[in-house]
Structure formats: structure tokens, C-alpha cells
Design a protein around this nucleic acid. Sequence first.
DNA 1: CTGAAAGCGCTTACAG
DNA 2: CTGAAAGCGCTTACAG
Lengths: 313, 313
Amino acid sequence: MTTLVDVARRAGVSKSTVSNVIRGDVPVTEETRAKVERAIAETNYLPNAIARSLKARTSMAIGIVVPDLTNPFYAELAAGVERSANAQGYAALIAHTECSVPSEREAGRAFVEWRVDGVIIGGLSPGSGLPAMLLDHDIPVLAASFGEPDDSRLGVIDQDDPAAMEMVVDYLYRLGHRRVAFAPLHLEEQSGERRRLGFEEALARRDLTAVELTDGATAIVAHNDMVAIATIDKLERRGQRVPEDVSVVGFDDIPLAAHHRINLTTIRSDAAEMGQRAVELVVSAARESRHVAHREVQGNPLIVRATTGPARV
Amino acid sequence: MTTLVDVARRAGVSKSTVSNVIRGDVPVTEETRAKVERAIAETNYLPNAIARSLKARTSMAIGIVVPDLTNPFYAELAAGVERSANAQGYAALIAHTECSVPSEREAGRAFVEWRVDGVIIGGLSPGSGLPAMLLDHDIPVLAASFGEPDDSRLGVIDQDDPAAMEMVVDYLYRLGHRRVAFAPLHLEEQSGERRRLGFEEALARRDLTAVELTDGATAIVAHNDMVAIATIDKLERRGQRVPEDVSVVGFDDIPLAAHHRINLTTIRSDAAEMGQRAVELVVSAARESRHVAHREVQGNPLIVRATTGPARV
DNA sequence: CTGAAAGCGCTTACAG
DNA sequence: CTGAAAGCGCTTACAG
């Protein structure tokens, strides 16, 4: 692999000069610039980012951790992060953790070893030590789509789960539903409990309590769209009709939710834009070598489609 | 951020010694090891991977490029790659290109600047210069799920698109379909043409030629499951029934294809296992500093489900 | 404007 | 077994 000194030798200048023309923030004679550029082109030289990072003390890389790339919500979040990171000149390191504590620990270690300039977390195991670990190593961290601000250094782009659950329960209540169940995530995820709690509190305000999934629910509120879609699958294979026998509502509004054959009532959440905003916040924190320490909440409207209807009497 | 010399100072030894206990391949007194380990624990030290990489001349990172993370096929491929890369101690750098030539160029530049040890490509724009560029920089490259072996240095885990298309067309032909159309990808992708070509050749063998999508097709073969699912959506919104009026077949067998409400007839392809195998091949090539230069073909069975039926007469 | 020198944080022979 | 030294490929003041 050709290096800076190869180029310098070929162009007959010092390596400082080559570095100067590459970075472009030091004036250079038109003539030397031409010589150097020719040498670069001839050797197909591309600077070694590793060496540059070592000296510059910034990796120009940002980490992203998602529980499950296979869930369109996280895929879009990751894609959004990747796109805007690149646009700002950052590389994206990805970790897919399945909310397993060892994976999270591994990802944390890798990210600090790589000295990433920031990390964006899409989901975590309950009580995960990842954010604190990263924060303690002076890496700005932002929790996207979840997160109690238990650590004031943490950045958060949150969803208002309780408010969303209140809307959902209100809507179902008006449709006459009194036996409502919650379909949790298969993974133990941090905000999982928060959604379920919000759901239960909304029920309690109406003097209702959640029923078991298998206990004759007339409506099911799922932790997210993927769970909702899987729930519909199970229900229908058992011969129950959605929404005639049971209503189902999701969370996320993944693209598939709008499909003619799915047509899922759900809570909208904009993963791509969340990813983009997350990068903005993290990158500006990194540039000022501080933590994000900022919290904002995304609005989450209810989208009514065709998997919900009046309660069966 | 604490460094090796901080640890050395605290432990009262040289930095070589600290390095020795960390890497563990040079014998060290039990006593010094203990001192060093204590210093490491007290300072929360984690070695700087960037410095290590610079010296070791291997980044221990592998790049992955996918056209669209949001397509479950690519998401699973990426997840498979990420998982096995991590298992082997490699970090995963991701690029989402949407088959745009500038994104591909950017990704290529970033990967060689980072001196990644190898890259796995899930899809590319037609005639893309990416593989050659990487290969010329001595980075092993593997094309997963597509790829003419136009460059013998390239690794390929291919699908036998012509054989798959022959199976599909054979199956539809037996069901009586004679007016069959192809639904292409919205992105211009390299293997897109190959699938369509295989499809047309299979038709030609039966003295048939493809009809336009809008020209009264009784069956539609889609480039992949996502396209098939979108096609079903369009068809049904127009009031056509699947499969009564028109049959639809996909390619990939993404998890959703098996959903009760979708139940898509499709060609199976195992993205996760392809990702894992790809990492195996690329990592062993990297270790021996050679190109992958190996080609294998994944088997792709036809999975008949409920979006296909006898041709409407 | 250009170049020599120091240094980023490690690893790796090589002495001792 | 332990440490001093050189070097990975850059960048960054600082002379000239």
C-alpha cells in the first residue's frame, strides 16, 4: 500500500508538503500542488485514516447499536444514521446486540477501543451498563427512541410512550373494548416495560386492568409493529379474525404497516429522521468535546387503519 | 483518555511490560502481571485500537455494503456479517448505498482509507467500479448474492438465478400461465438484469415472451420479495385478486413471506448463513493476505405458498 | 511557501 | 523476565 512518503519521494517534495496539499488548509504553490497531485494520481494514493486518526485524536467514526437490524424500525434508524454520518464525513460502525448483555459489553469495548467520536443507541437490555461505560470514557452517547434520562450526560430523543398509550387506550375504549391485552417484545428491552406500564396506567384511569393475551381479549396492543404483525399471524392461524374478533394495534408505523394486506393501526414514529437528528446532536457534542446532555421528545400520532374496530359483543 | 504509559507509570513498569501482559503472548512474572492488572482496572484502561492497528498493519475491521438496509434480505445479510465478524474479533463498518454510484465511490474511499481487512458486498449498481477499486488496493472482496466473476480475484457466493427462474417459469407454465410479466427492482442493481434475463430465457424455451406488467399478465415474477409484496399491494388496491386473478412470485423468502396474510410463493435464499460464510471466506483470505478468488453457489429451492394458482382462463 | 522534527499510542525485535 | 528503542503513517507547529 502506498504511503505519504512514497508520494513525496515521487513528487520530489517533503511529506509535510504532500500533507499540506491533501488537507488544503496551508497555501501551496500551484506548481508544487500540480506535481503532488500527479504523484497522487499515479500511485493511486489514499491517505491512511488510521494514522490520521491517531495523530488527530479523532476517529471520525460513530457507533450505532441496535437490538435487531431485521426490524424495519431499527433498519431505518441505522440507515438514517449511516447516511447523515457519511454526509458529515464520519464512518459508521454497527453493532447488533439482540439486547444481550454480553453483546452490549462487547460493543462497548469495541467502541471505546476504536475511540469512536460518539454512539447512538437504538435499544438496550433493561438496566444496561453500556451508556454509563461509554459516558465514563468521555464518549457522547444518545439514546434514540427510548431512555429514562437517568444520567444527565446522556442525550435522548425520546418517544412519549405514556401519552401514546393513553391515545391508544382512549381510542380502543371508545370502540367499546374492555378486555385489552398487551403483547410484549420477545427480547427484554429497556423501553418494553415503559410501554407496558403506560398501557396499564391508561387502563387504570378507566378502572380497567389488562387481561392475559389468551384470556379472551377483544383488543391487543403490541409493543411494536413487528410484534403486532406476528400477533395477527398467530390469531388468524388460530381462526380468529382481525379486526372482527380482535383488534390489534402496533407501534412504529413501519412501511409495511400501510400495506393493503396488513393495514395496521399504529403509532407513528419517524426512525429515519430520528437517526438524522441523532447524528446532528452527537456530532456537535463531539466537536465541542462535551456530552450531548440534551433531551427532546418526538411527537407520535395515532394512525388508524384497518386492524381495529368496534369491540365484539 | 488513559494510555499505556499512564498504566505503566502507575504500575511502576515499562510500557513494553504492560503491552506484554495485555497481549499475553510473552511470559510475565505473576507479580508484575498482578501489578499491571490492578493498574489497568483502576484506570479503566482500554487499549487504543487505532494505535494498535497502525502498528500491526491490520485494522481488524471489515466493511459491508448493501443497497438497502431496509430490505429484510440485506438486513439479515448485514446482521449475519456483523455477528460472525464480531465473533472473530472484527469490527463491522457499514455502507448503505442505494446503488448510487457516488455512494459506492464514497464507501470505497472510506474502506481503503480505513484499511479494512476485507469487504463484503451485497449489491451494486450495474457496471460498478467498486470491486476493482478495492481489489486493486489489495483488499479481499466478496460479492454475496450476485455477481458475474468478471474478476478472478473476486470472491463470490452466488445464486443460480437462471436455474431459479427456470423453476419458477416451469411451475407457472404447468399452472397454465402463458401471459407472464417481470416486476423489476426500483433500483438499478447489478443482478437485476440477470434475473430478468433468466426469466426471459426460460420463457423463450417455451416459445413465450414476457408481457408488460400492465398488459393483462396472469402471473408476475418479481425481482425479490419486497417487490412482490409491493406488487400485491398495487394489484389489490386496483381491485385485482391474488392469486385468483393474478399469481405473484417473489425471491428471497424473507421472514414476512411466510406470514399468514402474505403467504408468498418465492425462491428461498438464506441471507444470514450467506453472511456468515462470506465472513469466513473473507477473513481467511485476509489472514493469508490474498484475494478470496473463490466462487460458490447457494442452492435456491422454490417455496410454493398461496400467492400462486392456476391461470385464470 | 517548504521542510525537519516531534509526537499520536501502540507493538516488536533486541539487549540485558 | 523486563525495558529501551525504533517505527507504523500521518499532522502540526516551527524554522528557514
